[in-house]
Computed example of a mutant assay.
Amino acid sequence: MLLEGRSVAITGAGSGIGRALAIEFARRGAIPILIGRNAEKLAETASLLPAALPAKTCVADITSAHGREAIVQICTARGQLDILVNNAGLVPSGLLSNLTDSELQNAVMTNVVAPIALTRDLLRVLRRSDRPRIVNIGSIFGDIGHPHFAAYCATKFALRGFSDAIRRELAADRIGVTYAAPRATRTGAADGFQALIAPYGMSLDRPEAVAHQIVSAVEREAATVYAAGAERLFVAIQRLLPRLVDIALISKARKLRTGPVSR
């Protein structure tokens, strides 16, 4: 797919991977529609794009019907939408027993219900494109159930399943679907699980590197794109020999059980 002149709506575009995706899409000639809840952060992202590019911003909460309607209206006003990137998400971490109802509800609403609902609401606009595509930003933790990230894993497993289902359901409409599974990334969200990075031996990628890999996959019209490195091997082991992953992660989780990162 040639991205030059393509319209791409990106949720969570005010920071992190969303901002990096906006910059990378714009670098390849696409025209971003920046979506997020914080007007100042969206303006910061917009300021990093080429001045001549007719990018738009949309301040909206994707977890509300009103917010999604605002997104539909701005996308409709552009005439068509070529690519929808469901990127916005929360990363709850810590022992499940310590997570509140509010944290669980917010994670499920933001990471699962909102992207499903927004995809549904924008199908009519996407169908106007000659090569429409939906891009769902998941996680390696959508394949590997990881201790201290139970709620987050549950939402990303759900998003992966959703991606597979709509890829098959929408094939007759010529709407492609790309599921992206990056590993931990150096964004503000990582601050919430900083104490878990070293004990679990996590490697964090730069948002720019993640965005480059994802946008390249969109150009290739790939069905999936996974982070390179050891994590990709772990996904294969998880599918073929899950007991080995159990042994490795249970051992690390036990060491952390009574430590300061149990929260």
Rank of each mutant, 00 (worst) to 15 (best):
G94R: 02
N111Y: 06
F141K: 07
T155L: 02
V113G: 06
D164A: 15
E208W: 00
V218F: 03
R131G: 03
A211F: 14
R183G: 00
A114E: 00
D143K: 06
A114C: 03
A172P: 06
R120G: 08
F149W: 08
Q105D: 02
A184P: 04
S139V: 08
K156D: 01
I116Q: 14
R183E: 04
A228Q: 15
P182S: 09
A181P: 04
V125G: 14
R127F: 11
L95K: 14
A227E: 00
F193E: 10
R168P: 05
E208R: 05
P207Y: 00
L99I: 01
D130W: 03
D191E: 03
A190N: 12
M202H: 09
N106W: 14
I175V: 13
R183F: 01
V218T: 09
P132F: 01
P115F: 05
I116T: 13
E103D: 15
A154R: 09
R186M: 09
S163R: 05
L95C: 15
G201N: 06
G192L: 13
R174I: 01
A114Y: 04
M109T: 03
A114L: 03
R127S: 13
A150I: 06
E208C: 01
V112P: 00
A230W: 10
I197P: 11
P132V: 05
Y226F: 05
P132D: 01
S216K: 13
H146M: 11
E221H: 10
L159M: 02
Y226M: 05
G201L: 08
A165L: 00
N106G: 15
I214A: 10
A223G: 12
S163P: 15
R124T: 11
F193W: 11
F149K: 00
S129Y: 10
I134G: 02
I140S: 12
V225L: 04
R127Q: 15
F157C: 00
A107W: 05
Q194R: 09
P207G: 06
K156V: 00
A222F: 03
D101M: 10
Q105A: 01
E103G: 11
H146V: 12
S203G: 06
A172G: 04
A171Q: 10
A198P: 08
T155R: 04
V112K: 09
A172F: 04
D205N: 13
P207F: 04
